[in-house]
Amino acid sequence: MPRVMGVPQDYAQAAKWYRLAAEQGNAEAQYYLGRMVGKGQGVPQDYAEAAKLYRLAADQGHAHAQHNLGVMYATGQGVPQDYVLAHMWFNLAAASHRNSI
């Protein structure tokens, strides 16, 4: 198992801590937990749950979550395929990113 900053990498432990922060409304934690759930890193892979987590972060203006949610709507992964919603989330992500610079 690789080491990150002197400690062993442990996806399950990371998911546990991200979940605790996500449940308190932390958008960054919701985004990273969504990535982990979407990839099945340390938790069972669940695209629908990943989309829910991305949506929580996206609703708070998290640009990467908005982008990933757009991808999910464009591909129909974890949500019904919907190009209009995909377009909306891509536009919001672009606007959020511009506003954060």
Results as ranks from 00 to 15, higher is better:
Arg3Cys: 03
Val37Arg: 12
Ser100Phe: 02
Ala94Ser: 00
Ala21Glu: 04
Arg55Val: 00
Gln45Phe: 13
Gln60Val: 03
Ala93Ser: 15
Lys52Leu: 09
Tyr18Phe: 09
His67Ser: 11
Gln81Leu: 09
Ala29Met: 09
Gln45Tyr: 11
Thr75His: 04
Trp17Thr: 10
Lys52Thr: 15
Gln9Ser: 12
His62Ile: 13
Thr75Asp: 14
Lys16Ala: 08
Gln24Ala: 11
Met88Ile: 09
Met1Gly: 06
Gln13Glu: 15
Gly70Ala: 09
Gly78Arg: 04
Ala22Glu: 08
Gly70Lys: 07
Asp82Ala: 08
Ala27Gln: 04
Gly78Lys: 06
Ala86Ser: 12
Leu56Met: 13
Leu20Arg: 14
Trp17Ile: 00
Pro8Thr: 11
Gln24Pro: 03
Leu69Met: 14
Val84Thr: 11
Ile101His: 10
Gly70Ile: 06
Asp46Tyr: 03
Glu28Gln: 03
Ala12His: 07
Trp89Asn: 07
Leu92Lys: 15
Gln45Asn: 12
Asn99Glu: 15
Ala58Lys: 14
Ser96Tyr: 01
Ala14Pro: 06
Ala21Asn: 08
His97Asn: 02
Arg98Ala: 00
Arg3Pro: 00
Gln13Ile: 04
Gly42Asp: 13
Gly34Thr: 05
Gln45His: 14
Met5Ser: 15
Glu23Ile: 05
Ala12Val: 01
Arg19Val: 02
Met5Phe: 11
Gln9Asn: 12
Ala21Ser: 09
His67Glu: 10
Leu33Phe: 14
Ala50Tyr: 05
Gly42Trp: 12
Asp82Asn: 12
Ala14Arg: 01
Met88Trp: 10
Ser100Trp: 01
Gln41Val: 03
Gly61His: 01
Val43Cys: 04
